[in-house]
Design a protein around this nucleic acid. Structure first.
Length: 497
DNA sequence: TGAAATGTTGGGGCG
DNA sequence: ACGCCCCAACATTTC
């Protein structure tokens, strides 16, 4: 894992235990390659202690079910990778603000290293820990392991944070090419002080991260290989089958053109710098640079932009970036909300997307925009309700991208779609899933409908539904008429002033 | 990183 | 030959 050439040497170096260890506190960076905190610790010459705390600090938003499932696999794989090098991952649960300083003392650590987070609560906690550690004479260092460009390194000429993507991305790129991934480590030295007892160490299964998702764990398992090795594999597959048509086909949910790397990036199973440079090198080799590369890089740019926005708007997940949306007359309608969540709206593309989400913990980007537009504009339901559902069901949900994307669709965000841009789920289906393959995969009761009706089943004659016993007869009626709903949304939005 | 409504143009049928 | 209408195709404006 670390180096295929050098044999594991961890146990051989326990003699160095006279030296105080460096703690590597893993968080959203569950990998060993190109991990700046881990790398610096390994290079420090001191023995390592690798630590993960399942954080239950009050003001940290609890992970959703799908994310907990992903975390479980990522921790399992990280521990395996460390054990292959004769180390291990020390696991605890509780308040990071209390546990980290306590453990650093108990292990008589020389230093604690970690990679930075950008959410408001996380930053506050990390700063608090850093000052506590320093006060007790323990070195505390943080690194950038999550972004190409950290939020404070990109600003406009007037020194203000950006609110428009294209300007942000131009300025970010102008600061220079993203740093290259770190070189592989050749020898690791682990501290034996991890065997100290009475510190509240737990087993992974004690966290019950997977059992929280009994209903959909099976579908998740068949869709994903979690962890660092799975990330490399997914990236290789993308380069093999998706990248060469990326610019043209990335909007097609019926094609394997997208990278599907989002959950790996969310949990740091792979670093964005590794992705950036691996894809760029592949593009150069295959001579297919140009549009595909630029488009893919700009999608990574949207991820950067989301973190930029979150950093400068800490309450972005709860509060409209444009305050005029505060007076939006959202409908409090649990019936249509539930129909949306369950993929029973009567609009095939919307239902296919919501069912893909439930089955796999992931949804194609184009379809995310369509289902979000449908919830916000056709159903006139608060985007926060959609954000919360995605938070619980997406394996890639994070506080930056999820909130920024929902506000983008709602029109309440930065550089957002104008409020009158309302997706027509039928036209979107006919444009981006023209043969209906995506709909047929996730809404099998419509399987037999001809292409001409697959996105508008209500226009089918009874013979095309193949009688009342046919599965298509059980497909739900539309819960709203898009034409009417569109008018309602435009009126509500027009009254915002 | 829309969709719908409205406007314009031009060819063809027809009286 | 001419005006008139229809309508598709495309362009522009509006939501």
């Amino acid at each position: 894992m670390i180096s295929e050439r050098s044999p594991p040497v961890g146990t051989a170096h326990h003699g160095s235990d006279c030296a105080d260890p460096v703690i590597v506190w893993f968080r959203d960076d569950l990998r060993l390659a190109d991990n700046p905190a881990f790398h610096a610790a390994a290079r420090s010459g001191r023995p390592l202690i690798c630590l993960f705390v399942y954080q239950t600090d009050d003001d940290i938003r609890p992970l959703g079910g799908a994310a907990r499932w992903w975390l479980h696999g990522s921790l399992l794989e990280l521990d395996r990778a460390l054990r292959a090098e004769c180390g291990e991952l020390v696991l605890l649960s509780g308040s990071g603000a209390k546990l980290i300083p306590h453990l650093a003392g108990a292990f008589r650590a020389h230093s604690v290293f970690w990679n930075r987070r950008y959410g408001a609560a996380e930053r506050r906690i990390d700063e608090d820990i850093k000052s506590k550690l320093k006060a007790s004479g323990i070195e505390a260092k943080s690194f950038n392991g999550h972004l190409l460009y950290e939020p404070w390194t990109v600003s406009s000429s007037s020194n203000a944070p950006f609110r428009v993507f294209s300007a942000f991305w131009r300025a970010a790129l102008a600061t220079g090419e993203p740093a290259a991934p770190l070189p592989a480590l050749s020898r690791l030295d682990f501290s034996s002080r991890v065997s100290v007892s009475g510190l509240g160490k737990i087993k992974l299964t004690d966290l019950r991260l997977e059992s929280a998702t009994p209903d959909w764990a099976k579908g998740l398992h068949t869709s994903w290989q979690r962890g660092e090795a799975g990330a490399r594999k997914r990236l290789d597959e993308f380069l093999e089958e998706g990248f060469s048509s990326y610019a043209a086909a990335r909007d097609r949910p019926d094609r394997p053109a997208t990278s599907r790397l989002s959950p790996y990036l969310r949990f740091g199973n792979i670093s964005v710098r590794q992705v950036w440079h691996t894809v760029a090198a592949h593009a150069m080799r295959s001579g297919s640079a140009g549009r595909n590369l630029e488009k893919f890089q700009s999608e990574l740019g949207w991820r950067e932009f989301s973190y930029h926005l979150l950093y400068h708007n800490p309450d972005m997940g709860r509060r409209n970036l444009q305050p005029r949306f505060d007076s939006m007359p959202w409908r409090d309608d649990s019936v249509t909300l539930k129909a949306w969540q369950q993929g029973k709206t009567g609009y095939p593309l919307v239902d296919a997307g919501m069912r893909e989400l439930w089955a796999t913990g992931w949804m194609h980007n184009r379809v995310r925009m369509v289902v979000a537009s449908f919830l916000i504009k056709d159903l006139l339901i608060d985007w926060r309700k959609g954000e919360a559902w995605f938070w619980d069901t997406l394996v890639d949900a994070d506080g930056a991208n999820n909130a920024a994307s929902w506000q983008w669709v709602a029109g309440s965000g930065a550089d957002a779609a104008p409020f009158f841009r309302i997706f027509n789920p039928v036209l979107q289906g006919e444009k981006f899933d023209p043969e209906g393959a995506y709909v047929r995969r996730w809404v099998p009761e419509l399987e037999k409908l001809p292409n001409s009706l697959i996105h508008r089943p209500w226009e089918a004659e009874s013979k095309e539904l193949l009688g009342e016993d046919s599965p298509a007869a059980n497909y739900p009626e539309r819960i709203v008429d898009h034409r009417v709903a569109r008018g309602r949304a435009l009126e509500a939005l027009g009254n915002l002033g």
